[in-house]
């Protein structure tokens, strides 16, 4: 157990005009740990995730990230080139809609290879080999490597998006409802895949979901959000089996069986 977390979110506040979307959110994440953020639509969970990723400006608080030298650096203090470099190498963001995370007109191989090329890889054969290996890993037939993702099913697109993000071996992956628009059977396959990859690669991940079963399956810890606030946090099975906050109890009581 390391004393310094990989990611530390302190008092993060995000406003949309006069509406407060996220209010004083704080949490920490350690390497190898999966954290689920649950709550109903409009609870601020996706906004929190996007603010952590730097896609939305925070109106208060900070996000700190452990750099390779071990220091915990505030992201807003890093120069933009450094931040963007982190975002495309050490970080990954998996969008709910794969269209937001893929280049639909670029082949599957090009989609997976992009981050490698962005990181400076200039050997076509090696980029190709790496992309092939990752397609296999996310259970996409490597024969489809030159097909554009618009010819893929929703589940395949989502797996491709995950391959595209993981190819640079990020330390931190942020996922926004990764199984959101998928059929139940396809969801199961994707969840199993994410579960395996997270464990094999020792990733730290934050997963936003409204599905408590997803949190149960994937996450070590979870946060419950309501109205922009984190109302409860703790061990996943403890929060699901012995929720303390009235809203958590309502959430747990509202699903059939998580």
């Amino acid at each position: 157990m390391s004393a310094v977390p990989l990611l530390a979110v302190r008092d993060l506040t995000v406003r949309f005009g006069r509406r407060v979307a996220v209010q004083h959110a704080s949490f920490e994440l350690w390497p190898g740990e999966v954290l689920a953020i649950v709550g109903e639509s409009g609870s601020g969970k996706t906004t929190l995730l996007r603010a952590v990723h730097g896609d939305l400006p925070a109106d208060g608080g900070r996000v700190l990230y452990r750099l390779h030298d071990g220091t915990l650096a505030p992201l807003d203090g890093l120069a933009e080139p450094v931040r963007r470099h982190l975002a495309r190498t050490e970080w990954g963001f998996v969008h709910q809609n794969p269209r937001d995370g893929l280049r639909m007109a670029v082949s599957a191989g090009g989609n997976v290879g992009e981050r490698l090329m962005a990181a400076g890889m200039r050997h076509w054969g090696r980029i190709r080999a790496e992309a092939t290996q990752w397609l296999r890993r996310v259970e996409i037939d490597p024969a489809r490597i030159d097909d554009p993702p618009r010819t893929f099913s929703g589940g395949m697109q989502q797996r491709l998006q995950i391959a595209r993000v993981l190819v640079t071996r990020p330390r931190l992956v942020l996922m926004d409802e990764p199984t959101g628009g998928l059929d139940v059977s396809v969801q199961a396959r994707l969840l199993d895949l994410i579960r395996g990859l997270v464990a094999d690669l020792g990733l730290a991940a934050v997963i936003v979901t409204h599905d408590l079963a997803v949190a149960r399956l994937l996450a070590h810890r979870m946060l419950v959000m309501q109205g922009g606030r984190i109302v409860e946090s703790g061990l996943t099975d403890q929060v699901l089996d012995d929720p303390q906050h009235p809203y958590s109890q309502l959430l747990v009581a509202s699903v059939l069986q998580a």
Binding site: D241, D242, Q244
Partner: peptide, 9 residues
């Protein structure tokens, strides 16, 4: 039992 396992707070 569940309290001993940390499943119940």
């Amino acid at each position: 039992m569940r309290a001993l396992y940390g499943n119940y707070l």
